[in-house]
Design a protein around this nucleic acid. Structure first.
Lengths: 241, 241
DNA sequence: CGCGACTTTGAGCTATCTCAACAGCAGTGG
DNA sequence: CCACTGCTGTTGAGATAGCTCAAAGTCGCG
């Protein structure tokens, strides 16, 4: 898949190649298991696009004209409340598909945390394709189911865990996701801010910062620029057992 | 659909008829939009079953041999943490399908809150059917997407809302679900305990009770046996705006 | 009637939030 | 080259929403 010994998997030099068959994220995307005909259809429909850090991909409520497959970088998906409170419902990594539900309007907002490259589809065309291609629908359903399960885990985290457990669970889940896309490393790349982590974990940024500090003081993690190195994964796991 | 002026829609006398075409919950189930052939297949696979209140339908981690469509009653879906903490991730009502993800093991536990009647499928047979019936897959995907969206709303509730907002949002969401299945009424049927509501809203049962009392004191709701009557829906809505 | 399960209410406690100060660092411009 | 600014992160101290523990109230049911 990627060269993974360092964090170059998300760097500019490892952009997925132009062709789907050579695409670097195909192995972890909804297009992994589709047949060749379907893949060709998808390739014909797709356009490559880039977003710079902090650019918006779409806003909750907008007409969902475009669907995205993330190729590189990190995207935050979130909902806002009237008074500015924000809940991040997920961080999208390479291989993640935005718009799984195929619905007419976006149900969350999305913006780029880092520079982001995506494979973009027009929704109408994509939906048409899905209608004729049960293998693609099957993939979409599997991905949606997986998201649903992740969401249920997150409800447990938000509803029933302490601050320390939330942060530990967040770190371990992030690690698992990097493993899944073949980008694992004892050092987790964390381009998001403390505020982002807080808005994902249902905490304040100060509590997140204090909790990171405590975990570092206890030598379970090491805080490094743009990331965290997991030192004692077993003890992190015991925290959330 | 049902006779709805009172709460009889969930009573024993309104059990869905034996035939799928005459089924009382079909209009709100995954089988709503499937073609006649698919429906016949599903009917052949399905078995009617009953569970009494507090009976377990399945436990998280078990092999998912059976899938369920709820016909009558209410089911709680939850996850447990080691020390007994519980997060309820959803209440299943008539028309809700349990096992949308078609996965090999259950990701949550489910037990009956009331007496429950279900339409039950063997997973293997069901999955086989889905493979050959894109229309059913389409329905499953739509239902799964809807669950995913509901889950994201719930993350906002759990991560960023106050106790009062959580309870208000819970009541309004419950009302919407009853509306959706054609069982709406100013009085919401709430057979679950305060502990269940607490475990759904990420609160303690005392906080839920106090919040209900406050909403009742403020005349936004009226607490009645086995339910809550919504008196000033607009003010509840303003609470969560 | 009396028991058990659920609910309500009260009072004190604490995990987390809020507010505030400060530190590190990158970019900017004199 | 260095002051300055803005942004992110850290740390401290006091405030508070919701939790915990406890007691009493309600209701259905044998």
């Amino acid at each position: 898949m990627y060269a993974l010994t360092d964090r170059c998997w998300y760097s500019k030099t490892h952009v997925a190649a132009e062709s789907c068959t050579a695409c670097g994220v195909r192995e972890v995307s909804i297009c992994r298991d589709v047949c060749n005909d379907t893949l060709r259809d998808m390739e014909d429909m797709s356009q490559r696009r880039q977003f710079s850090a902090r650019q918006t991909l779409f806003n909750e409520g907008d007409r969902a004209d475009m669907l995205f497959n993330v190729l590189r970088g990190m995207v935050r998906l979130y909902k806002l409340l009237s008074n500015g409170r924000r809940q991040i419902v997920g961080f999208a990594l390479p291989g993640d598909f935005l718009g799984l539900a195929l619905e007419q309007t976006y149900k969350v907002s999305a913006d780029a945390i880092t520079e982001v490259e995506v494979c973009r589809f027009e929704r109408r065309a994509f939906v048409n394709c899905v209608e004729n291609r049960p293998d693609l629908l099957r993939s979409l359903h599997a991905a949606t189911s997986h998201e649903l399960e992740t969401g249920q885990e997150q409800m447990v985290l938000l509803g029933r865990r302490s601050a320390e457990e939330r942060v530990a669970a967040f770190l371990l889940a992030l690690r698992q996701r990097y493993q899944r896309i073949g980008a694992c490393d004892a050092t987790l790349w964390m381009p998001m801010t403390r505020q982002d982590v807080a808005d994902y974990c249902g905490l304040t940024l100060e509590t997140v910062s204090r909790t990171f500090s405590k975990l570092a003081r206890d030598k379970l993690i090491l805080i490094v620029p743009d990331g965290v190195r997991l030192i004692m994964i077993d003890r992190l796991q015991r925290l959330i057992a």
